[in-house]
């Protein structure tokens, strides 16, 4: 059985400066190797999103790019909300994730309104968080590189999908004992928001499988996610092991600016 899975990337030219195409590529490559036909659609300002979309990806970019796409994105609000309510997949990273929060307060004190898909507010901060990050999640350790100057505040800590094991993360979690705890990654149904680059999906095969499994379940597709992925998994495991060794090594901290 062949089925076509549709992945759209919103504003790839301006919200796509941190390898965000790699997240699309990871989904596409693994879906194709599992036997699906994949259609990847770059969608720019003023262009229509297909109605039967399976995955929506929104990437990272500067504040000016967020302002540049803002009116267009707000006009898509109902469509994106029903996409998420339908249980379809969404991945937003960095600026793209911020635009799906309830709003972003800039260093100048202005507010950039968000779509409110994720129940959190964002404040841009003077301090920048840069370096490798390791997060404990329901699908294992999610590993990547964080590089952002923002602090998220969740209305309810239950929206957190991960606890930071190494690195700084996006938001505070209720203290664990007397240790302050940090969280990263927010999930609502099959929509995921994060500040993790690398890009995140190529480095985290389990997270890709989680997203694809959701797509397959909703569409009632039978996909074998174990075929033809040996080298992808080997290289991802090698990259993950090298990062884990580095962050647990002596003297390694985050990048000094």
């Amino acid at each position: 059985m062949t089925a076509t899975v549709r992945i759209a990337q919103l504003y790839p030219e301006i919200l796509g400066v941190t390898g965000d195409r790699g997240n699309v590529r990871a989904l596409q490559v693994r879906l194709e190797r599992a036997g699906a036909t994949v259609e990847v659609l770059p969608v720019g300002i003023g262009e229509e999103l297909p109605a039967d979309l399976d995955v929506l990806v929104i990437g990272n970019g500067p504040l000016s790019a967020m302002r540049g796409v803002h009116a267009d994105l707000m006009a898509r609000g109902d469509g994106i909300r029903s996409h998420v309510a339908d249980g379809r997949a969404l991945l937003a990273v960095g600026a793209g994730a911020e635009l799906l929060s309830k709003g972003v307060t800039t260093l100048e004190g202005e507010t950039v309104e968000g779509l409110g898909i994720f129940d959190a507010t964002v404040a841009r901060t003077k301090k920048r968080k840069v370096g490798y990050i390791v997060v404990e999640t329901a699908v294992g350790r999610v590993i990547g590189f964080e590089d952002h100057a923002s602090e998220w505040t969740l209305s309810d800590a239950a929206g957190s999908y991960g606890r930071v094991a190494f690195g700084q993360g996006g938001f505070a979690l209720p203290d664990a004992g007397d240790q302050p705890a940090r969280g990263e990654i927010i999930r609502v149904a099959n929509a995921i928001a994060a500040n993790i680059q690398g890009p995140m999906l190529p480095l985290n095969p389990e997270l890709v499988r989680e997203i694809i499994t959701g797509v397959a379940a909703r569409r009632d597709l039978e996909l074998d996610l174990t075929i033809g992925v040996e080298s992808l998994d080997t290289y991802a495991a090698g990259a993950r092991a090298a990062i884990e060794t580095l962050v647990h090594g002596k003297g390694f901290n985050s990048i000094q600016l």
Binding site: G16, V17, T18, G19, D20, R21, G22, R25, V130, G131, F145, D147, Q197, G198, P199, P202, Y235, A236, A237, G238, A239, A241, A242, L246, I255
Partner: peptide, 26 residues
């Protein structure tokens, strides 16, 4: 430090690489 941008590069001009190396080889 951050090599996310590797995925923004079009590698069509390459067919193969014999040895991939460095701390970030994987």
């Amino acid at each position: 430090p951050d090599v996310s941008w590797l995925y923004d590069v079009d590698f069509h001009a390459l067919e193969s690489v014999d040895v991939v190396t460095g701390e970030k080889a994987y």
